[in-house]
Design a binder for these strands. Structure first.
Lengths: 247, 247
DNA sequence: CGGAACATTGACGATAATCAAAGCGAGTGG
DNA sequence: CCACTCGCTTTGATTATCGTCAATGTTCCG
């Protein structure tokens, strides 16, 4: 199976054979770690950045009151590529949410690759834009949707992102390593509340989630709750999830 | 006064004289518009992107229930530069929040500049990373801080961003064109709630805000409430704003 | 002067947080 | 193989932050 990071970049710019080889060179010597391991710690002068090959990870920040917010779920092919010359200290850390295989790419090597290959430069720029778009949608999700909508949206987003990875989704079913605590920290809610809303989705036969496997039973309804999908948005102002059974 | 966009990019990469000239060429023919005008509408095939020269603007999304979330406040020098070849439709629009001067840069021209000048390419890549960092901090802010903390954080962030622009801040005082409705849509709250929390900050002599001018009276306390500032974060787990007078 | 947009206030309601306890399930060690 | 533990999930009761609704005030502008 080919490298998901390379595949990702191929989707973001037109790469030549030489570019692909250059990237694959950067991804040699992957490492394996277990769940809940830090693979990037706050340290401004970090000289390399992690790229996820398999498994899930997350970027998060810890607040002074002990609160935690995950800012980005990292799926296979995702990288924590940041400003190569950061003045501002990075508050974010990267932690694995499942067993993971990942590579550490030295910044200097990536810089070299970017200088040498224009398509790689374009791909990385576009990667930043894509991350940006996902972050924007997270802001909207957390800022303006209620708990049920948020959760539905998250599931829709993950479903879509996973579909773009070889063999990650089959019959709308996929591995889902997040604990309810993790989901709470993604969505800005409490674990207890997550639990209750999950059950609401389950009882309405919209999803099933057991032993770290998620199956979407009713994708249209899930998307409707989430207000996902541009098609839905442009269909005019249809009503939110009124027809759902009350909890 | 020099162009704030060029200054911004100069802060993000080391530009040569030729690069600066190229960028200044891109910024010819600015346009002026009044407040609450769209300067970028949802339209996937947009051929140019806006750059703010003076005034404030915002990227936002409108939800199907009429809700609105601002995902990014755009200050002078900020651009809405997105993926040059977007497959996914853009849901975001850019609206001015005050009278604005801005330029529209054709994507093709920016592409050409990026191809021709490596430093510009680097600067734009870093610009994306910087936006990313701001968006991450917005996610944390909205996801895990209460209303008062959120507002304090927003003010701190804007103060810091404005300080980097020539003449925008003087004695911790600056133009602040946001209405309370705008602030609500930035912070994921309601206007009524914004109003009450603003008063809390005013009554504690932390800020003053009158006729679109913000003055920070007690920056340390404001930052303390917000949990801003890495210095503060690393000072150990000090207590949140307990000493504040209850509303 | 009149109107519109924006800000302020109060009363009430609802969503989500908090606290606390019990249940479940997978892996570990005796 | 069973008891035990640990992490995670589930449940109930209670609290509080924030939202909603509605009315009044204020400021700005033509």
């Amino acid at each position: 199976m080919s490298n998901p990071f390379v595949q990702r970049l191929e989707g973001l710019a037109c790469l030549g054979e030489a570019d692909v080889r250059t990237l694959e060179d950067l991804c040699k010597n992957p490492r394996d770690v277990g769940s809940k391991r830090y693979i990037f710690r706050e340290s401004s002068g970090a000289s390399s950045f992690p790229v996820i090959i398999s498994g899930w990870a997350a970027r998060h920040q810890i607040l002074r009151n002990g609160g935690r917010q995950i800012t980005r779920l990292m799926l296979p092919g995702d990288a924590y590529y940041f400003d190569a010359t950061p003045d501002s200290p990075l508050h974010e850390e990267v932690i694995t949410l499942s067993s993971c295989r990942f590579v550490q790419i030295p910044h200097a090597c990536m810089e070299r690759a970017i200088k040498a290959c224009a398509p790689i430069s374009t791909a990385m720029r576009n990667y930043g834009c894509m991350e940006n778009a996902i972050l924007s949608s997270m802001v909207v999700n957390i800022g303006r949707r209620d708990a049920l909508e948020r959760m539905a949206y998250l599931i829709c987003e993950l479903h879509l992102r996973l579909e773009m990875i070889d063999g990650a989704v089959r019959d709308d079913e996929f591995a889902f390593p997040l604990t309810q605590d993790d989901m709470a920290d993604v969505l800005g809610l409490t674990p207890v509340h997550i639990n209750r809303k999950l059950q609401q989705l389950r009882q309405n036969d919209i999803i099933s989630l057991r032993s770290k496997r998620m199956k979407i039973l009713d994708l249209p309804k899930l998307r409707q709750i989430a207000g996902f999908n541009s098609a839905y948005l442009t269909q005019g102002h249809s009503e939110p999830h009124r027809e759902m059974v009350a909890a």
